[in-house]
Design a protein around this nucleic acid. Sequence first.
DNA 1: CATCGATGTTGAG
DNA 2: TCAACCTCGATGG
Length: 353
Amino acid sequence: MPEGHSIHRIARQFGRHFVGAPVAASSPQGRFAEGAALIDGRTMTESRAVGKQLFLEFDEAMWLRVHLGIYGAWDFAGAVATATARTVSSESESSSSTRSRDHPRLVTGRMGQTGMRGVTDEDAPATVVGAHEHSLASIGAPRRTRLRMAEQERESAIDDAGLEGFPPEPIGQVRVRLLTERAVADLRGPTACEVLDATGVQRVIDALGPDPLVDDLEAGEERMLQRVRRRRVPIGLLLMDQSVVSGIGNVYRAELLFRARLDPHALGASLPDDVIRGLWRDWRHLLGVGVDTGQMLTMDGLDEEARRLALRDRADRHWVYKREGLPCRVCGTHIVMETAAGRKLYYCPSCQG
DNA sequence: CATCGATGTTGAG
DNA sequence: TCAACCTCGATGG
């Protein structure tokens, strides 16, 4: 259930802990045995995210393309820093700890899938557990059952424990395991997982709309503008169309439209250029915050009290997403949910009328 | 224990 | 338009 921000964070994890290292690749589940054999033993040379697509390059221009789809997730373990990054600037009130960001720790963490549980993936601070245990630092959606935070930090335990008990046994259906001496990444439930050459990668990227963290901001804005302005398709659908703009999913779609006070049914062709440009810029902003914090923080701008109350329950932390029947935070009108192209679309019929 | 649904995408009809 | 893909936590009995 990852949207663009999660994939960029995953790409960063690979960049930090796998790129430059020889990787043992396997498919514990067996369903990707052939592809894993192609990768096995090669050194990872690059890690990139474009929209919701992840591209990992190995020696000799061999690329692994992964799309997590709706179920997919990466679990990291070993000497993997859990940290939040500082690539994108924002005033985000990151709840993630920055204390763990500089030094790799013995942890496990999940990136990608999310659940409605109280604890969300990416924002859980990493903690260090004993030699034979691992703590979870998730990004995406950690499995509650596997989330066992240490009661207290034990810095020294890292060195003492080393990587004893590493690597952990694969749990559940692991399509691909990428293993270095110090870190391991398990992929489960992807909608796409394939080995491509550089041409194949370019073909995929060419079909994608601009990504604010990949494309030049001005050029990306123009590209999105061109792809929206002539379409007689509701903007609510265009924002989800990865060939129009990359990385937006169902949550960001609903929230971006509310933040713009825009009717999801308005046709792309009916929108003033400024409105379309505004959507691109707000997406850039939200994506940056999301990558920085690992959370989909879409309610900046709320006054402090309202924000505190809203953020208390993590299941109800948005303007409109999943708030069907609840009063609009701005005008009190009941939030509406309707199905569009098989996905649930939430909006305020008054604010976004 | 069975069933549902989820921050996605593809492809059949 | 809708099922299929694929995984697993939440939900309900």
